[in-house]
C-alpha cells in the first residue's frame, strides 16, 4: 500500500504505532508542541525536549560538513529502545517532527 492512500493524519500514526515493537509515536508542530501523542503527558514532554536538542545539534553538525546537506532521520539506540526522529524544516523555518519509540523484544 502506498502512503498516498492514507489521507488522514490519524491513520498514518496508527500504522506507525502498530509497527512491530513501537511503544509510542509523537508528532510535534512548529511550536514544539505535540499535536498527536500516544504516550502520557510527562513522557511526551520529555521526549520532545530531548529530540529538539538532539536534532539541533545533529543538524548543525551535518550542515557544517556540507551546507547543502540536511538531516533526514536520526536514530538513537539506547539500552532498552530505539528512538527514531524524523525532523523536517519548512522553507519559512518552521519545524515538524515525528518521534517513534521502538522497544526490542
Amino acid at each position: 500500500m502506498s502512503s498516498t492512500d492514507t489521507s488522514h493524519a490519524g491513520e498514518i500514526l496508527d500504522r506507525i504505532q502498530h509497527h512491530k515493537g513501537v511503544r509510542g509515536v509523537i508528532v510535534v508542530n512548529s511550536d514544539s508542541m505535540s499535536v498527536r501523542s500516544t504516550l502520557d503527558n510527562s513522557a511526551t514532554v520529555q521526549y520532545i525536549g530531548m529530540a529538539k536538542t538532539l536534532t539541533t545539534m545533529s543538524r548543525s553538525l551535518v550542515r557544517d560538513i556540507n551546507p547543502q546537506d540536511d538531516l533526514a532521520i536520526l536514530r538513537v539506540r539506547t539500552k532498552k529502545s530505539e528512538i527514531i526522529i524524523a525532523p523536517e524544516r519548512t522553507a519559512d523555518d518552521r519545524e515538524y517532527q515525528v518521534i517513534a519509540i521502538q522497544d526490542y523484544e
Partner: peptide, 15 residues
C-alpha cells in the same frame, strides 16, 4: 498532513 505523508515512508523504513 503534507509533512506526515512525506516522512511516513522514511519512518516506516527505519522501523
Amino acid at each position: 498532513l503534507d509533512f506526515l505523508l512525506r516522512v511516513y515512508p522514511a519512518v516506516m523504513a527505519e522501523l
